[in-house]
């Protein structure tokens, strides 16, 4: 942003909330005037949101979904970084693995859902496996790229001063590749959310995705909208948390490049 002087509080609030409020009012006006069954008024959605999600449903459906997402994401991170480091460090391994990895990355992750359902059934394990199998590729490929592009002078420095083994891994390889790894993690997060929802829509009797489809099939329109809203908040919340983490991990990187 090129804002040089800090605007006053009033102007900042207007900028922050002005357009959202206008949009909600427009929605409101539209929902009142049109007879469309599919477009409930904002208060109706908020009411449905409170009724639907401030209830045991939050613990029975929403939390397990998020837990599966986080579990799959964490597993994919361990797997992606764990495999990406050795592949990135070895020229031969990388040359052999790259076309295979590019192919796996190019497969649209949702098609893995029916495939893994077949292999692993329709339980929790399958849903986590789906998330892992989609999230792992961006993380893996970015780790490989980050490790490959480590600074030659920096790794010479490590060799000269006898920094090797675990210490080299910790101080040079992982830190040096972290900007790329974080980029992979960011891509993987959005893939993960998509897969969390789809795996539940496809074959499940619980979870966020399942519940929202259930509302839609039962024409519980305000409830369906409240589910969409919840998913939106979830996506927004996770991206805020991610950015906060990224800023902590990469603070040296931004300042270094600036």
């Amino acid at each position: 942003m090129t804002v040089t002087e800090r605007p006053g509080l009033g102007l900042r609030l207007l900028r922050l909330l002005g357009l959202p409020i206008l949009l909600i009012l427009a929605w409101w006006a539209f929902s009142v005037t049109s007879e469309s069954f599919y477009v409930p008024t904002p208060p109706r959605v908020v009411q449905a949101f409170a009724e639907t999600w401030f209830s045991p449903r939050l613990i029975d459906d929403a939390l397990p979904s998020v837990a599966r997402l986080l579990a799959g994401y964490a597993l994919a991170t361990v797997l992606g970084v764990g495999l990406g480091v050795p592949i990135g460090l070895s020229v031969r391994l990388r040359a052999a693995a790259e076309p295979v990895l590019e192919f796996f990355r190019a497969i649209p992750p949702p098609v893995l859902v029916p495939l893994i359902m077949l292999l692993a059934g329709i339980d929790n394990g399958m849903k986590i496996l789906v998330i892992v199998s989609g999230c792992v590729w961006p993380i893996l490929l970015n780790t490989v790229e980050g490790v490959r592009a480590l600074d030659q002078v920096l790794s010479d420095t490590c060799r000269m001063y006898g920094v090797r083994g675990r210490s080299r891994l910790r101080h040079l390889v992982l830190r040096g590749a972290s900007p790329q790894i974080m980029a992979g993690l960011r891509q993987a997060l959005s893939v993960g959310i998509i897969l969390m929802v789809i795996s539940e829509m496809f074959a499940s009797s619980s979870g966020l995705g399942f519940t929202i489809v259930l509302f839609q099939r039962g024409f519980a329109i305000p409830e369906m909208w409240s589910g969409i809203l919840l998913l939106g908040l979830l996506g927004f919340g996770l991206s805020v948390i991610f950015r906060w983490m990224e800023r902590r991990v990469l603070s040296w990187h931004w300042s270094h490049r600036a």
């Binding site: 922050l16 959005s190 929802v197 829509m201 929202i212 839609q216 369906m224 969409i228 927004f236």
Partner: peptide, 18 residues
Amino acid sequence: HSTIEFLRPIPSVALIPL
């Protein structure tokens, strides 16, 4: 800015029922 930053991370699969 605020509107875009809110709408952007919403997973598009949330729109499937709609």
